[in-house]
Nucleic acid binder design. Structure first.
Lengths: 241, 241
DNA sequence: TCCTCTCATTTCGGATCCAAAACATCGCGT
DNA sequence: ACGCGATGTTTTGGATCCGAAATGAGAGGA
C-alpha cells in the first residue's frame, strides 16, 4: 500500500481546518504533548505540522515558549479583502472570454441557490431574531461556490491559491446575531452576483472585472458589520508574517 | 544565553535564500543527511526547515522519496507576474497619498542608481558581448529597491509578503547572454520607473496605479525574452502538499 | 539477451531519549 | 508583609535510534 500522505501533513491539514474554521480560537497555545496524545503520534510529526502552519501564517512560534494561534487585527482583515478584491478581479477578467455555455449554466444554478439562501437570511435579519450560524455558513459556502466557478474557468492556480488563503481570514461557525441593517447588504451581494454573471455573459471582461472588485470590497463592509455585532468576543484567526 | 532563533528557522532562511537566488537549481533533490552534515545538526531540525520551505512552495515533498526543489513552468511564471502586477498596482495606489517629501527623495536616489545601472546594461546589450551575471543581478536589486520604497510607504504587510514571494519565482544568478533587442526593454523599464515616480509626485493615485500595473506586465515580457535566450527549460512538478 | 525475482543498501518517517530554557513554587532575609 | 533567590516541574529543541519504503545490484530462468 502506497502511503500517499505523511502523518505530519494529515495533522497539519486537520489543524489548519480547525483554525480557519474558528474551532480553535485565536491566542490559543498549542501544546505539543497534548496534540501528540490527541493524534496518537509522537511529538516529531506534530512539530513538523506546526512548522507548516507557521509558514502559512496561521500560528506563531515563540522559541522555547510554544506556538500560539495568531489573531488578526481589523487592519489585517481589511488588507486581506483588498488582496482578494484585486485577485478576484483579475480572475474574473481572465475567465470571461473563456466561459462556455455550460459554465454559464453552472453559474446560474449556483447563483439560484445563493439567491434562495439570501432570501432566507434576509428574512432572518429582518425579523431580528438570533441568527442561525448554520444558515449563515451555508450562505457563505454558496457564495464561495459562485466564485469558485470563476476560478475554475480562469485556470490560474496561483491566483486561486492566494485568494482562497486570504479568504480564510475569517469568522467560522461562531454564532452571531442578525441585525436589520444587514438586510440591504445581503440584497446588494446578491445583486452584485447577478451583475457579474450578466457582464460575463455579455463578454465584457473589463466590466466583469470592475464588478468583481467592487463586490469583494463591499462584502468587506458586510463582514465588518458582522464583526461589529459580534463585539469583543469575536476575533478572526488569520494571517501575517 | 537567550536563543532568539531556532536552528530550524536559521536553516530554512539559508536554504530559502539559496533556492530563490538560484544557487540551488530547480529539480535538485535535497538529501536530509547531506544537509544535516553541512549545517552540523541532526536531521530533525533539517526536516522542520524543509517543511517550512514546502509550505512556502519552494520545494515539494514526495513521501518516502525525498524533497525536490520546485521548478517553474512558463505558465506559472506568467501567472506570478500577473499577481505581482495587480498587487503592486494596489500598493502604489495606496502609497501615493501617503508619500512624504523624504520618501520621494529616496525614490529619486534609488531611481538614479537604477538609471545608471540601466545605462551600463544597455551598453552591454548593444555591444552584444556575453552578459555579466553580476551586473544583471545588481540591476535587478536596484529595480527591487525602487519598488520596496513603495511597499514600505504603502504599509500593507500582507500585500508585500505575497508580492515578494511571487517575485522570487525567478532566474537567480545563472549566466545569460545579452541580446540587442533587450536594449529597448531596459530603456522602457527605466522610463516607466520615472513615470511612476512623477505620477506619485503629482499625487495621482489612479495614474500611478495604472503605470505600476503596466510596468510589471512589461517587465514580464522582458523576463520572457531573457528566458528565451537562456533556452528556457520549463516544467514543474505538482504543488507539494 | 532480456526479463524478473530476490536481497542488500539508502533514505525516509516516526519514536524515544536527553539537555536546556521557561515557569511555578517555596523558603529565606529584611 | 514583601522582595528575592534557590529549587523542582513543565515544555521545548535537538539528537539518537528503529522500522519501513524505495532504490539498485545481481542471480536465475526463458
Amino acid at each position: 500500500m502506497a502511503t500517499l500522505s505523511t502523518k505530519a501533513d494529515d495533522i497539519a491539514r486537520v489543524l489548519e481546518d480547525e483554525i480557519v474554521g474558528g474551532l480553535i480560537p485565536p491566542d490559543t497555545v498549542l501544546r505539543q504533548e497534548t496534540l501528540s496524545e490527541r493524534f496518537e503520534v509522537s511529538r516529531t510529526p506534530v512539530r513538523e505540522a506546526l512548522r507548516r502552519l507557521a509558514a502559512l501564517g496561521l500560528v506563531s512560534f515563540e522559541p522555547n515558549r510554544g506556538v500560539r494561534v495568531r489573531s488578526i487585527s481589523a487592519h489585517e482583515l481589511r488588507e486581506a479583502f483588498l488582496v482578494r478584491a484585486e485577485l478576484e478581479a483579475l480572475a474574473t477578467e481572465v475567465a470571461t472570454p473563456k466561459m462556455t455555455p455550460d459554465d454559464l449554466a453552472e453559474m446560474d444554478a449556483v447563483e439560484r441557490r445563493f439567491g434562495d439562501l439570501t432570501l432566507e437570511l434576509r428574512d432572518q435579519a429582518r425579523s431580528g431574531v438570533t441568527g442561525d450560524a448554520t444558515l449563515f455558513v451555508e450562505w457563505m459556502q454558496a457564495n464561495y461556490a459562485f466564485h469558485d466557478v470563476i476560478y475554475r474557468v480562469a485556470d490560474l492556480p496561483l491566483v486561486e491559491r492566494i485568494a482562497k488563503s486570504a479568504r480564510r481570514t475569517f469568522i467560522g461557525d461562531r454564532v452571531w446575531r442578525a441585525r436589520a441593517e444587514l438586510d440591504q447588504l445581503y440584497a446588494k451581494n446578491d445583486l452584485q452576483h447577478r451583475a457579474i454573471r450578466e457582464a460575463i455573459g455579455a463578454g465584457s471582461a473589463t466590466a466583469a472585472r470592475a464588478l468583481a472588485r467592487e463586490h469583494v470590497l463591499s462584502s468587506n463592509t458586510l463582514i465588518e458589520v458582522v464583526l461589529e455585532t459580534l463585539g469583543a468576543s469575536g476575533r478572526a484567526p488569520g494571517w501575517g508574517a
